[in-house]
Design a protein around this nucleic acid. Structure first.
Length: 526
RNA sequence: GGCCCCAUCGUCUAGUGGCCCAGGACAUCACUCUUUCAAGGUGAAGACACGGGUUCGAUUCCCGUUGGGGCCGCCA
């Protein structure tokens, strides 16, 4: 059993390609086959490396390893379609010899005009074969006119093609409706559809698992294979991934539009948050949630994306949702793949991410999160044990508030010096400038300072006693305390916060906040 | 326009003739817990596109309609 995924190097690895690759890989792993990565760069430009790199990187990040292909080689090398041109040309000659293809002398303009007229007259757009060079005399005549021939497939004029698609079941095509597709250009280069089926045959691919948009293209490929007497691979056409809340295909050409789309808002916000730390502009293409790169850059767990993508069009049963990579590889079967397109749902992806994130050991989460602190200049490189320990404590206290790696930046206040902590203005005003609060906080500060131990349990104990003695409620002082030490109105438990900051920092921050409150207060009364 | 594919809650899905006045999950809402924000707990609302058949019985089978999508390139 051999499968392949054959992306064209477009410069970005997007969600749809990732899922197609994943399904191929899962099927391959479940069946114990070989996974081939082939690059369909038929008319690639000069910077192949640049446009290929994101795809290779994306696949590796997702843990989709290939047995044969770029970087690893294999018995069917080369794995770049552009390097197999001679073979494709030879196959075209073979097709010509067998009468399965013919030289056609129509110019591109003539073909187009014919097609447009056919559409205008609501006729079939099938080529008329008017410029077909089917006899020596005609060929000579056309060539005397200075025409250069392309090669077209000579499609059957009757009969039915019955395909047994692995997810769609029986699909029929009427041969007489199929176009005489061009397989070789006037300049001698070959077209994708020919190259694709030739390479699949040469690479001994047994299952072609690809996106639905190729279903209509299958007859011409079957025609080529049959004309050459090749055994047909099994075909399997996967539904495409649709835009959130719609059935439109997720398109890599609409990236900018998605960035403004409400459904993507949560993800886009994460991108905006990391952008400065990564030295990127907020709307950088790499931070577009339709590309896999986004998830690597913002600190997703690859297994979470794999889990989500696997379930976008496939389900094992009516309740199993959480899968690790190897569990999927064991359970995956093509017959449980859905036939209808599935919309990408950022919210659901985030839910999978949260679950996978929390499933990680703290040490693993520390490793995931650390690069963001380093890049933001908030942690040393490499981070020391003490730093790792501190980050671990923050992660444990934060729980599922840190959903993706980049979320650690919400807690940057822990990594800035006490005299540079930034205060949220509204929070400060509301919690620290409230009458009487500063005085209570100052009194509580002395209790804290007097504590023997400086851990969360002690803080809680101290506060509870203080509240009783002062005849107040916890809420009367704790909010001011949070703002004083973190600069923000929201965050995880205050007692844990104080413990992580330590005695010196905690007291210094409270003192600074009190001084600022005093200043603001005197300005008000002036 | 031609051909092909598809159709269960907002979303992902379970369902292969009776177990389904349709189950789970995400999202939503309410209540609860609570030191904020999350999380948690409890609960609510929410779908078989429509019309014909077939059948004792259709979400499930067939036909049609409607809707959505893909392909129809000397792009991949």
């Amino acid at each position: 059993m051999r499968v392949r995924v054959a992306p064209s190097p477009t410069g970005a690895m997007h969600l749809g390609l990732a899922r197609t690759a994943l399904y191929n890989w899962l099927f391959c792993r479940a069946q114990g086959g070989r996974f081939v990565l082939r690059i369909d760069d038929t008319d690639a430009g000069r910077n192949l490396d640049e446009s290929l790199e994101p795809i290779l990187r994306g696949l590796r990040w997702l843990g989709i390893e290939w047995n044969e292909g770029p970087g690893v080689g294999g018995p069917h090398a080369p794995y770049f379609q552009s390097q197999r041109a001679e073979r494709h040309a030879a196959v075209v000659e073979l097709l010509l010899e067998r009468g399965a293809a013919y030289l056609d002398y129509a110019t591109a303009e003539e073909t187009r005009a014919e097609r447009e007229q056919a559409i205008a007259e609501k006729r079939s757009t099938r080529y008329s074969r008017r410029w077909m060079g089917d006899t020596e005399a005609r060929r000579r005549q056309f060539e005397a006119e200075g025409r250069k021939p392309v090669v077209r497939l000579r499609m059957p004029e009757s009969g039915t093609l019955v395909l047994d698609d692995l997810v769609r079941g029986r699909v029929e095509f009427d041969w007489s409706l199929e176009q005489d597709h061009v397989v070789r250009r006037a300049d001698g280069s070959c077209l994708y559809h020919l190259a694709s089926i030739v390479d699949d045959h040469d690479m001994d691919i047994s299952h072609i698992i690809r996106a639905e948009e190729h279903l209509s293209n299958t007859p011409r490929q079957v025609f080529i294979a049959r004309a050459l007497g090749w055994a047909l691979p099994k075909f399997c056409h996967l539904p495409y991934v649709a835009e959130p809340g719609s059935k439109n295909k997720l398109s890599k050409r609409k990236l900018e539009q998605y960035a403004r789309n409400r459904d993507f808002a949560e993800l886009v916000a994460i991108g905006r948050k990391v952008a400065p730390a990564l030295g990127l502009v907020p709307d950088a293409p790499a931070l577009n949630p339709v590309s896999i790169e986004f998830y690597e850059l913002t600190g997703f767990v690859p297994a979470a994306l794999v889990n989500y993508l696997a379930l976008l069009g496939w389900a094992l049963d009516d309740r199993t949702e959480h899968f690790e990579r190897d569990e999927l590889a064991r359970a995956f079967t093509l017959d449980r793949v859905n036939r209808a397109p599935a919309s990408f749902d950022p919210g659901r992806l985030l839910a999978f991410q949260t679950r996978h994130m929390l499933g990680l050991a703290v040490e693993a989460r520390v490793e995931l999160v650390l690069p963001f602190l380093v890049r933001a200049g908030l942690a040393g490189e490499p981070a020391g044990d003490a730093e790792r320990h501190r980050v671990g404590a923050i992660l444990e206290a934060a729980g599922d508030r840190v959903k993706v790696g980049a979320d650690i930046l919400d807690y940057r206040g822990f990594f800035t010096s006490d005299d540079r902590l930034e205060y949220d203005e509204a929070a400060f005003r509301k919690r620290l400038l409230k009458p009487g609060v500063a005085e209570l906080l100052a009194r509580f500060r002395e209790r804290l300072a007097a504590q023997q131990r400086f851990d969360a349990a002690s803080h809680e104990d101290t506060l509870n006693r203080f509240v009783v003695e002062a005849g107040i409620k916890v809420g009367d002082v704790i909010h001011a305390l949070r703002v004083a030490v973190t600069g923000k109105a929201v965050g995880f438990g205050v007692f844990e916060t104080l413990a992580i900051l330590g005695r010196d920092s905690s007291l210094a921050r409270i003192d600074r906040a009190l001084a600022m409150a005093r200043e603001a207060g005197s300005e008000d009364t002036r």
